[in-house]
Nucleic acid binder design. Structure first.
Length: 578
DNA sequence: GCCGTTTTCGGCCCGACTGTTTTCAGTCG
């Protein structure tokens, strides 16, 4: 049985190959669109195939439905095979080079016989490329640069990497005297798990000065392009950053435009058209007029379109516009709703902080309770706790609590128990019963079959002592895919057992994926935002987990971090009795 | 390829920038 990801890969390739083939852009675009639609894990492709109901999905028509069914039954697509025969595989990869699209790939293939990135590099170096019609010396240089960058980073950056690069630049821009307002936009502002580049939007009457200032900032390695209102630079850490300057009156429009997503913007523009308006990054224009409607902020733009404010995290065209139109947007969780954190490691296993360090941090940051969760005994590589170490840590937590309870801070006795290969937990029930909560996580045997892994994880979440399922898939962003697992089955099992699902806030993980957060909530699951901290600095990762929760439409009612310690402990305790 | 209470054909969001041209194609977001 083919997997969703295999189908999406095939469709991605179809989209590029159709472009190479010179097909109607709307045809190739239809495949890219299908990739996005079918990436939604709440769509059960197998079931739709069985019921021949794929065309009931908006955006999937007869043609693509047939391709899906073909792929599902045969594991391949005839038209894809034909296209592959026409164009070497290396051409598809080439289109991932920045500034190098399908048209150029087709040209170098047909005119120079170039079939992969290595040959492209040689052609650019020895001058053949620059002699090609429509190409030139600068194009060749840009392509070489693009190839190097593609190799270095494969084009994407984790959100934390991007944020760390963005923050000082944003502060510098805000400090410039000609800048009235400055914000980050793009996938960073939408709190995606990774970003292709960093987008900034500035309100200024003097774009020229700001552009020059931006291009000369510390950390800028090269200026890729600079016009009157837009500049692109490459930062020293290999991330590209774009700055767009607009007049103050246009700022909200520009911010909304560059925040995206592209798909969300398309939908908003369509909505504008339906209302006799034209929407672009400069404004919302009544038909035939060139003076835009006034909008001091994004909420005003949405209001002009008959919608309540749609938070940036939601702007993925995943139902937010429909919900907004029905006045049914969720009241998203905010940082201030969070009163407790759980899943952090201490010196007892592989963490750097001492137990008490967490109490002190909580006090400084207005957090009422912190759930310690070190590794369990099977995690030998991480210094997992033997039963006697567990009891020693309990005694220490009791002592620390005596010192801090008057200051309104409480530490909870928890554990991150390995899920063993048969789905059991890592201590006997008696010891497990002494914890105030248990996070159960897979740390080994990633290569089980999907069936075995799913059975294993479901057995763990059904264990009466399991409070939280930790980092569900074991994925590492931009580095390692999650292990094979039927996540929706696991989510349903969690809902049935009352097991909380962690949104692991570590930016390397962000697991549960935000795309499934919404699904889990619909299934009736509770969620936790777990920093999985191994150092005090790791507690700041909560911001990324919060972003994922908000992207998944979570409210404070869905997230146990918003509960009091007593409520959380009672929930974990009562679950044991079920 | 998708879609449809004006439509089963003919649209499909819109603009900036670059490099190559000398009016535009390609790429990107």
């Amino acid at each position: 049985m083919p997997t969703r990801n295999q189908l999406l890969d095939a469709f991605r390739e179809m989209g590029v190959l159709l472009e190479l083939d010179g097909a109607n852009t709307f045809k190739s675009g239809a495949y890219s669109k299908a990739v996005r639609i079918l990436g939604d894990e709440s769509i059960d492709i197998g079931e739709h195939v069985q019921k021949h109901s794929l065309t009931s999905i908006n955006g999937i028509g007869k043609g693509i439905a047939e391709k899906i069914e073909e792929f599902w039954s045969k594991g391949s697509i005839g038209e894809l095979e034909e296209l592959r025969a026409k164009f070497p595989a290396g051409l598809v990869e080439m289109t991932a080079i920045p500034g190098f699209g399908a048209k150029k790939a087709r040209a170098v293939f047909q005119e120079l016989g170039v079939t992969n990135i290595e040959e492209l590099q040689r052609a650019a170096e020895d001058g053949r490329l620059a002699d090609l019609k429509g190409f030139g010396k600068k194009t060749a240089e840009k392509i070489l640069d693009g190839i190097a960058q593609h190799r270095r980073h494969q084009g994407r950056h984790r959100i934390d990497t991007a944020w760390q690069a963005a923050r000082p630049i944003l502060e510098a821009l805000r400090g410039h005297k000609a800048v009235q307002r400055a914000e980050t936009a793009g996938s960073l502002r939408r709190w995606r798990e990774s970003a292709k580049d960093i987008d900034f939007v500035c309100a200024t009457e003097n774009p020229k000065d700001v552009m020059e200032f931006f291009a000369a900032l510390e950390g800028v390695e090269a200026v890729i392009g600079r016009g009157d209102t837009k500049a692109s630079v490459r930062l020293a850490n290999g991330i590209n950053a774009d700055l767009r300057c607009v007049a103050p009156a246009q700022f909200a429009y520009a911010l909304a435009h560059f925040t995206g997503s592209k798909e969300h913007n398309v939908r908003l523009r369509q909505r504008a058209i339906e209302r006799g308006l034209k929407l672009n990054e400069y404004g919302l224009f009544p038909e035939g007029k060139d003076v835009p409607l006034e909008a001091k902020d994004e909420a005003a733009i949405h209001d002009h379109l008959g919608l309540p404010f749609i938070a940036p995290e939601l702007r993925e065209d995943m139902g937010e516009i429909e919900a907004a139109a029905d006045n049914a947007l969720p009241n998203l969780i905010v940082r201030e709703d969070i009163v407790g954190l759980m899943h952090m490691h201490t010196t007892y296993s592989d963490g750097q902080p001492a137990v008490e360090d967490y109490a002190a941090w909580a006090h400084r940051n207005g957090i009422a309770w912190m759930g310690i969760a070190d590794h369990s005994q099977s995690a030998v590589y991480a210094g997992g706790l033997k039963p006697e170490a567990v009891r020693a840590q309990w005694r220490e937590i009791d002592e620390v609590n005596k010192r801090w309870e008057k200051k309104g801070v409480r530490l909870l006795k928890g554990i991150e128990s390995d899920i063993l290969v048969d789905g059991s937990l890592d201590y006997d029930d008696e010891l497990l019963g002494g914890f105030e909560f248990v996070v159960a996580s897979v740390h080994s045997r990633f290569n089980l079959s999907e069936d075995e892994q799913t059975r294993r994880v479901i057995a763990a979440v059904e264990h009466p002592r399991t409070t939280i399922l930790g980092h569900m898939t074991g994925r590492l962003i931009l580095r390692r895919d999650g292990f094979a697992l039927r996540q929706k089955d696991v989510i349903k099992a969690c809902a049935a057992a009352g097991t909380v699902i962690e949104i692991n806030a570590n930016p390397h993980r962000l697991d549960l994926d935000w795309r499934l957060v919404h699904y889990a909530i619909d299934q009736g699951c509770l969620l936790s935002i777990g920093p999985d901290a191994h150092a005090i600095a790791g507690l700041d990762d909560v911001r990324y987990g919060l972003g994922a929760a908000r992207k998944g439409w979570a409210t404070k009612d869905d997230i146990v971090n918003c509960w009091s310690a007593d409520k959380f402990i009672a929930y974990a305790r009562d679950k044991k009795k079920r």
